[in-house]
Design a protein around this nucleic acid. Structure first.
Lengths: 192, 192
DNA sequence: GAACTATTTCTATATTAGTCGAATTAATTC
DNA sequence: GAATTAATTCGACTAATATAGAAATAGTTC
């Protein structure tokens, strides 16, 4: 994945904004352009400190400078900010996409047919191949290596369908989850 | 302003996400719930370290834990994330709102009539009162305490109207900007 | 070109914070 | 209730960085 590069950029983005004076600088530059010294007196810190912060902000693409007579006028690059915010929003809405990403066209079509927009199962298809799509659909709600009580399993499954008992049994019958004889504990089976 | 409280929260928000392992934790929890130990082996760090990070994330409202048998299952609080992202987006779009905030109804109406949606001046009103509204509209593009060349003034004004020469003269005539005799330098006049 | 100015770079310092390992706590199992 | 297990807290170390002041740089004015 080239996702790792993005992660590094994102970390840098947050780290840059996770400092009081830098965030205040961004807030000020959002209103108008400032010179280094203007920022220094406004924030009550040395000019060299401001210069240092501006350099970091510039490296992250958040501000840009233009020469103006004596001064260096810094202004905000709103593009970078809104771009990052949009990316954040995209990550924060994994209602469907997180699980449905990487699914085949077939799986997507089955889910579109048999689940509502909030992920609940409307009905169970007859064909086993389609049936398994729905079982795999609920599976990510369970973590590997965790033993669940039957009560908790039902709680989780109730998010998908009211008939939690049948749903629970099917998960076991089709080999997606396993069940302990005595205590009635369930756990997710490792795929492979 | 109670804005200061928000600034503190925002700084904390960014600081929390500005650390590689914490951001990776958020990414993982965005897909499903994890136990502390699962996160520890996935990230390749000690469990105590993960616990430390999770505590910070929880204090910022980004994650929440629920007890599950032996384990503590941590999951992402997508509400907090999307809320912050929206706030970010709002700040990143000061195209109009930043300047137009705090304007009177009269001023807003004049701007709506004589400027386009991207802020350009369509026409100049006859009445002086309305005319001054437009001059104050372009003024924030100039910083206090900076001397501009005539060329640079025209560059800036061209964002608002093609007739930069008249616009520039008007700004001086109406006392919003001043002009040096010799070198032809301009600067913004302090209001008062 | 000399004087001046804002900005940047350099150096040093002090504080913050991430990490690990050990000890402690909290909860579950038999 | 004793044993087991995951998680948290604590203590110590190390690395990163925010800051100020001095020196160097780049650009402007006369």
């Amino acid at each position: 994945m080239d996702n790792n590069q993005h992660v590094g950029d994102l970390v840098e983005f947050f780290k840059v904004l996770g400092e009081p004076n830098r965030l205040r600088i961004v807030g000020l530059l959002g209103q108008r352009a400032y010179t280094v010294e203007q920022l220094a007196v406004t924030l009550g810190v040395g000019a060299s400190t401001v210069s240092h912060h501006l350099a970091r902000l510039a490296r992250a693409g958040l501000v840009a400078a233009r020469s103006e007579s004596y001064y260096n006028l810094y202004s905000l690059q709103t593009n970078a900010l809104s771009g990052m915010a949009k990316e954040l929003l995209a990550q924060a809405q994994p209602a469907r996409p997180a699980h449905e990403q990487g699914l085949s066209d077939f799986d997507r079509k089955v889910l579109a047919t048999f689940t509502t927009s909030d992920g609940r199962i409307k009905a169970f298809p007859m064909q086993e191949r389609k049936f398994r799509v729905l079982l795999r659909h609920v599976l990510p709600s369970f973590s590997h290596g965790v033993r669940y009580t039957e009560k908790r399993v039902n709680e989780i499954l109730s998010k998908y369908n009211d008939d939690t008992a049948r749903l629970r049994r099917w998960l076991v019958d089709f080999g997606y989850m396993a069940r302990e004889g005595g205590g009635g504990k369930y756990w997710r089976v490792d795929e492979g």
